[in-house]
């Protein structure tokens, strides 16, 4: 299905852009008129994916992160992409409480948070090349409202 609207932005890998990215994604997704709770789910998941690119992908060094959002009548598809370090073992990385940086007080819950707040999370990664995280969510509030009409 063709999206009804799309956006794509690229920004520097900086921790101050974590808030920027989640506010932008929420503003864009707001066009669909989801509930505040659904919007918070999206914001939190985007924050996790972008933070991972900053901390793990680029290890707090320079780089660029690209975020795309595709809107469908009652759903959204968001991609967060870095050209950083990549992940050796994606299955391991996705385990709750697994972190490669415990000394930096990371808890290893980022992927679990994304999986809880979104419907589906896909991770594509290659060591030395980078990581792409795809987040999918259907807004039940909109889907159910459309059904009633």
């Amino acid at each position: 299905m063709q999206p009804i609207n799309e956006m794509k932005i690229t920004f520097s890998s900086k921790s101050s852009n974590e808030a920027f990215a989640r506010v932008v994604s929420a503003a864009f997704v707001s066009q669909l008129d989801p509930t505040l709770e659904e919007l918070a789910d999206v914001k939190t998941s985007v924050s996790e994916a972008v933070t991972n690119a900053v901390i793990h992908g680029y290890e707090n060094g320079p780089g660029y992160i690209t975020m795309t959002c595709k809107l469908f009548p009652d759903s959204v598809e968001i991609t967060v992409e870095d050209q950083g370090k990549g992940i050796e073992d994606v299955e391991l990385a996705r385990q709750p409480l697994y972190t490669s940086k415990p000394e930096m007080e990371r808890s290893g819950m980022g992927f679990t948070v994304m999986e809880t707040f979104m419907d589906k999370v896909e991770v594509f990664s290659e060591p030395g090349k980078g990581t792409t995280v795809k987040l999918y969510k259907t807004f039940k509030s909109i889907r159910d409202k459309d059904k009633e009409e």
């Binding site: 989640r22 914001k43 933070t51 007080e105 808890s107 980022g110 948070v113």
Partner: peptide, 12 residues
Amino acid sequence: FMDSSGIGVIMG
């Protein structure tokens, strides 16, 4: 707003 970063701060 809080993401998983908050867990690390409290645990620490």
